[in-house]
Design a protein around this nucleic acid. Structure first.
Length: 429
RNA sequence: GCCCCGUUCUUCUAGCGGCCUAGGAAUCCGGCUUCUCAUGCCGGCAGCACGGGUUCGAAUCCCGUACGGGGUACCA
């Protein structure tokens, strides 16, 4: 049973919950339940609060946040509530909140799968709020009530909840609950400044990663590597194997930095491991041009090996699309203007390709090798130096200095377009 | 301030007293393969925060210091 809890009615945003569920679904977490609104469980929380009140473990408090802070400042130090209303015997009113009377003595301890035993002196626990003046329950109260009621077995959450756990446990004791889940507090993820990843400051939206073209399997694979490592050292692997090896007790407790570079590497490997058909399926949502998928099909495996993100697919095959060729300025300058043999190479290539039949990668290669020899781009043995010869042809036909293998690209491009582009480049030079 | 926790290469980690002159991965830098790029393969740079103990022996256990994180809400 997975529970995502948001008890604040005023800030309850269904679309946010839906978004979380969508992302969890994308990551592969199955979700069969229906969201439950806290109002449906109000009686449960109210009952618990009432029991605490009659047992003398809770009291009404009308201190405002400002008054609490002012007193703390006057005391000269520690912020937080000082128990001002503990024995004032206040009745419930429109501005009163219900506070829990934390134990003055003893200590609360609990075992945590990732952190070991954690112990806290009860006197350091302040009297926290159980019910807001609006009558709604706070996180801690709803938590213990729901966990016990729903029979939650494992509480797995971020390190930021460690400090709240003793309060939660004291509350459970006061309620007479014979309930104790297994705890696992995972380390937080930090940014380059070593601060906890925050929604406002950092780009942590799963949605954003999906839009950039990360595969969910790569995402989960990488996430598993933060705070944990497989015993056999094989980091990039199928999810099933990770499930087999992953143990909460092996997770470290130090904060980990979210390294996008490594995530990209993991993604590239997952992308390459895909069967070609599946690579095409995954690419489809990232293709904007209507003919892109058809074009991609002809060079899929060549592209698959060269991209780290699915968003890189279309740019890589842009020269094959039914659209005017865009020639990169730097590529043009570097290869055509500064490349001495460029004009000759283009002319010789056009000549060699015009009568070429059939139009396939091997024969195109042969023709271009011949052109290279013609213009003197040869090595000591008199063989064509393709590494130099292919440059001008590549820029003329694809507009860039890098891309999929040239001969296969030209085969996919077709004879007519290839020659037209070579002529256009030659004329421009 | 107070409470809880953490610290192995730049980063993510393996290591749980001798297999460690500390292993892997990402990044970066070389080389090979090669029609560019990418892949693949080979190699390189780089670390146990510091100081005390305990022990025949410490990255591993204990204490302290420094640094870092989390919490300290009528948010969750």
């Amino acid at each position: 049973l997975l529970r995502i809890e948001d008890t604040d009615t005023e800030r309850n945003r269904p679309e946010l919950t839906q978004n979380i569920l969508d992302m969890l679904g994308w990551l592969g977490l199955r979700w069969d339940g229906e969201p439950v609104h806290q109002s449906e469980r109000a009686a449960l929380y109210a009952g618990a609060a009432e029991r605490l009140l009659v047992a003398g473990r809770a009291y009404w408090c009308d201190c405002t946040a400002e008054a609490t802070q002012a007193r703390a400042k006057e005391r000269g130090g520690p912020p937080g509530y000082d128990g001002f209303c503990r024995d004032r015997q206040l009745e419930r009113g429109p501005t009163t909140a219900l506070r829990f009377r934390t134990p003055d003595e003893g200590a609360t301890t609990f075992d945590d799968i990732v952190r070991g035993q954690v112990a806290v002196e009860n006197r350091t626990l302040e009297d926290f709020v159980l019910l807001r003046s609006s009558g709604t329950p706070t996180f801690l109260l709803a938590n213990i009530v729901d966990d016990a009621d729903m029979g939650i077995t494992h509480v797995v959450r971020g390190e930021e909840h460690v400090n709240g756990t003793p309060k939660y446990l004291c509350l459970g004791d006061a309620l007479g609950l014979a309930y104790r889940p297994v705890f696992a507090h995972l380390p937080v993820l930090v940014n380059e400044q070593r601060k906890k990843l925050s929604k406002r400051r950092d780009s942590v939206s799963v949605q954003a990663f999906r839009d950039e073209g990360y595969l969910p399997s790569a995402m989960v694979n990488y996430l598993a590597l933060l705070g944990w490592g497989p015993k056999d050292g094989i980091e990039v692997r199928p999810l099933a194997e990770i499930q087999e090896q992953f143990r909460l007790e092996d997770v470290g407790s130090a904060p980990a930095f979210f390294d996008v570079k490594k995530l990209q590497h993991v993604n590239a490997e997952h992308l390459r491991a895909l069967p070609v058909d599946q690579f095409l399926d995954e690419s489809r949502p990232f293709l904007e041009h209507g003919d892109a998928i058809g074009v991609l099909r002809t060079v899929a495996s060549l592209v698959q090996e060269r991209v780290r993100l699915l968003s890189e697919v279309e740019p890589m095959i842009a020269f094959l699309l039914d659209a005017p060729l865009v020639v990169d300025d730097d590529a043009w300058t570097k290869t055509m203007v500064k490349g001495k043999a460029a004009p000759e190479m283009l002319r010789a290539t056009i000549e060699a390709l015009v009568g070429l039949e059939p139009w396939d990668a091997d024969d195109i290669r042969g023709a271009i090798e011949g052109a290279a020899v013609t213009v003197g781009l040869v090595n000591a043995e008199g063989h064509a130096q393709l590494s130099k010869a292919q440059g001008p042809v590549r820029v003329a036909t694809t507009g860039r200095t890098v891309g999929p293998p040239l001969f296969e690209s030209l085969e996919a491009l077709g004879k007519e377009r290839t020659i037209a582009r070579l002529r256009a480049a030659s004329a421009r030079l």
